[in-house]
Simulated scan of single mutants.
Amino acid sequence: MKPFRLLVAGLVHDHVWHMLPDFQKIPGVKIVGGADPNKPLREKLRKEFGVTALFEKPADLFDEVEADGVLVCSSKSDGVSIVQAAAARGLHAMVEKPMAHTAEGAKKMDDAARRHKTRLMINWPLAWNPSVVRALEMAQAGDIGHVFHARIHMAHQGPKEAGCTPYFWGWLYDAKQNGAGALVDYCCYGAAVMASLWGKPRQVMGHAGTLAKKNFPVDDNALVIGLWPNRTVLSQASWTQNPDFHDILFLGVDGTLETVRGKLVHTHTKANEFSHWGADRLNRKEIKLPKLPVGERNGPEHFVHCLRTRKAFKSLCSAETGLAAQQILTAGLKSDRSGRRVSP
């Protein structure tokens, strides 16, 4: 197996500590260097993963250590310059979701990758959830007919409450570094799903508010609605919901698909039947979920697999989808501020 040398630029996104072990499980992958301005995080990388080439600045890391790719787990604003610097040095990059803090920042990242002919992948944790993967496949294949509405609802009680470190929630709660609060952090999932399945909507409506947390610096709840001539998609986010909720609903003219905590449920009426408070006519069926194939079981595996085989990243994880998702989010923020619909 050809060796794959990996760098890590940014350690303040807590997801990094879950992804690095997945990289280590891939034959031939070696983590050869890391960069972060926080000394305790660099020390953690050294102790837990044996990385000795450590730097404060990503640019110094890229100049001093030869590698094949980089995992970017910085704040969303810092990720823009990191990807630009990596692309300029010929490094392929995997960025933990979402792509950036603003549509402008995402466009700079995409432009840099295109200019230097490097590859850029955006990692979405839901892309490796079998129930979500199958739901997206069925919706796109027309298994429930024309999908006229979808709801992607992502919620928990908040990053700090969820046990995130101060390194992580410190920038999540900073609109300059994150772009907003819950709207960017959690509406991003719905924005990516709608962009992957149907491209950018014609118009976007958005609302971001601090509805429950007192003296909170950013929005703790948000909605982003994509509007097409024949479809609406609601991306709903909350940092105050108890208990958590991370599921998707697709409404089609021939049936409904709903993920329910790792399961996928299909309901529909039979031909010539009408369902009106008719629980006996729902024809509720749990869909059997196949195992995800090798190369598509988690983000690190997919990144390395696609680079080694020169295959395209799956649609949900492409830079094109990541950019479109960021444009949808930015349009949602503009809509919230203006009170009007906005074209992404």
Rank of each mutant, 00 (worst) to 15 (best):
T118V: 01
N215T: 00
L316M: 12
N272T: 07
L292V: 14
V12N: 13
D220C: 07
G145L: 00
W128N: 02
L136C: 07
C317S: 15
A271R: 09
C187Q: 10
V51D: 08
P159M: 07
L249K: 00
S74T: 12
I152S: 05
L172N: 05
K76F: 12
D143E: 13
P37H: 12
S235I: 11
G33A: 13
M154E: 13
G181R: 14
A59Y: 05
L61P: 15
A103S: 03
R284C: 02
F303W: 08
Y167V: 10
D63I: 03
G142P: 01
D174P: 12
F274A: 04
V218A: 07
A180L: 04
M138T: 10
A135C: 09
F274K: 05
K285E: 13
I248Q: 00
S75H: 09
D247H: 05
V224A: 02
L91W: 00
N283Y: 02
V304Y: 01
S318L: 10
F168W: 04
K311F: 11
L264P: 05
W239C: 11
A141L: 05
N215K: 01
W198H: 13
D14A: 09
H305E: 02
P3F: 08
C164P: 06
V132G: 02
G278K: 05
S318G: 11
R114D: 01
V265M: 06
G255H: 09
T321V: 14
V83K: 03
N242Y: 00
I225T: 07
S318W: 07
L136N: 05
W169I: 03
S81W: 04
L251C: 03
D247R: 09
F250T: 01
Q140M: 11
S335D: 01
V133T: 06
D143S: 14
G179V: 09
H116E: 03
E48P: 03
